[in-house]
Write a protein that binds this DNA or RNA. Structure first.
Lengths: 153, 153
DNA sequence: CCGGGTTGCGTGCACGTGCACACATCATTA
DNA sequence: TAATGATGTGTGCACGTGCACGCAACCCGG
């Protein structure tokens, strides 16, 4: 949201922290998405699905994918269509529930994800490594842990 | 992006910091946007434009608004249309440049922004105040300052 | 067995966004 | 002054997203 040089004396430190958080999240997201799209023609939303699939051994249902990630179920369904069209994932009917469909990475999908993940690390390093030290990283992780511990979500 | 309980041992602390950052930014943005939309029928993108206008005395050109905020120029143009239709902003032709148009809050716009900003603070307090202390806030601000000091943007 | 409520999945529709373009106006140089 | 490039603004178009719905399959009580 708000940009760097805002002279808002009336804003509390919490407000500044919030605006900076949204700004940083949006900026870094755009940067990584741009790198992924340019080099691998892989939008960040696709990458996010593949990220979650890469750490699961068994196929994952779209509903669970929608709950675990920041994507809606309809978005997961359409991203799965696109990934399947490229042969990066496959839909496996659940043996116990005829309604449910499990999504899993194909071998090509695992290779593509590995390459894209390298790109992500590279793009991230350009921003993080030179500007933040270990204490900053640890502070961020501590804040995320506190926020994620929130009851209502 | 990535959700809370990810068991990714291979990821570095920087990766965790990044995923947490995107998650926190998206989640808090959605929460504030939801509160603003429910109570004031005011999307966060509209609020962002009004936020910037509220700290400027003179009318601001759409191009500058697009550069200062996280919105594109076309988005600024359309948001301005919507805000103008509700009488919250007005377009003032530049006296020196016939191409340029200055956007400024109306009196009703200032009142609406003040109310919406109160809602924003309230929604934010529900998340921040109970979970983060002053040290956390200060740490976040320090990180944003470092990131914003980046040369290439 | 069977009927009603629930769950899982995918899709039509409306809406917001980015990109490229059209148009008008300014700046600059001959 | 006249002409060429640059700048400011708004818009058509394609695309991605959320919401509500339809459909099929499951569960469960009668």
């Amino acid at each position: 949201m708000a940009h760097a040089n805002l002279n808002l004396d009336g804003l509390t430190p919490r407000d500044h922290a919030f605006y900076g958080l949204v700004w940083a999240g949006t900026t870094l997201t755009a940067r990584v998405d741009q790198a992924l799209t340019r080099r691998h023609d892989l939008p960040l939303s696709w990458f996010e699905v593949m990220l979650w699939l890469s750490v699961q051994q068994e196929p994952v249902a779209p509903s669970e994918l929608g709950a675990r990630t920041l994507l809606s179920r309809s978005q997961v369904s359409r991203v799965a269509d696109s990934l399947q069209a490229r042969g990066l994932v496959e839909r496996i009917p659940s043996p116990t529930d005829a309604r449910s469909v499990g999504i899993a990475l194909t071998e090509a999908g695992r290779r593509t994800y590995a390459e894209a993940d390298a790109t992500r690390r590279e793009a991230l390093a350009e921003v993080f490594d030179d500007l933040l030290d270990d204490a900053d990283i640890a502070a961020l992780e501590a804040v995320w842990a506190k926020l994620k511990a929130r009851p209502k979500g």
